[in-house]
């Protein structure tokens, strides 16, 4: 086993156990911190895939903003979090569904890999940012998704401001 494989295995183990702890923790804040660990693990996995850009973006977007907005939301809704069981009555069913999905996905992936599709590793000196930038604004490429992303973000901003601001003064 190469050193890189060890790095991947350790990271994967940490990521998966952090994800499990996230689901299992009662306090929402602890769940958020476990989520942070899982997200960091995913960032390291991106590094092993030589997708530096996405590893850094993972830090910047997921940990730097999505996690922080989740923490703020947890603090905003603090009063109702601690009571009652953390899982709903269908938890066993949910576990069953998740298990079936896991088995099915793994089966499909392994089947597909066995079918002998040619695979080739990325060249080590491949720079992932420039082609992405060109493709994003290329009229033949992904120009439309790029603009749609902007509109989506605008819609999210307007929608969220509207919803969160709606009944001001009515809350406690």
């Amino acid at each position: 086993m190469s050193a890189l494989q060890w790095v991947f295995l350790v990271t994967a183990l940490i990521t998966v156990s952090a994800a499990v702890m996230m689901v299992a923790s009662r306090r929402m804040m602890h769940a958020a911190l476990w989520l942070a660990v899982a997200l960091l693990g995913v960032a390291v996995v991106f590094v092993t895939l030589e997708a530096s850009f996405f590893a850094v973006v993972q830090l910047l977007v997921y940990i730097g903003s999505i996690l922080i907005i989740i923490v703020f939301a947890i603090m905003l809704t603090q009063r109702s979090t601690e009571a009652g069981p953390r899982l709903n009555p269908f938890a066993w069913g949910a576990a069953g569904v998740a298990g079936v999905v896991w088995a099915a996905l793994t089966y499909i992936f392994i089947r597909w890999l066995m079918s002998g599709t040619p695979l080739q590793e990325l060249g080590a000196s491949f720079d992932d940012v420039v082609p992405l930038g060109k493709a994003l604004v290329d009229a033949e490429g992904f120009a439309v998704p790029f603009e749609v992303a902007s509109v989506l973000l605008l819609a999210a901003l307007i929608g969220a401001v509207y919803i969160a601001f709606e009944r001001r003064g009515e809350g406690s």
Partner: peptide
């Protein structure tokens, strides 16, 4: 696949909306 299933379990089984 593992992370996806754990996420799916959280979506189906947790009661807290943020979870």
């Amino acid at each position: 696949a593992t992370l996806f299933s754990i996420g799916l379990f959280a979506v189906l089984a947790r009661r807290h909306a943020i979870a």
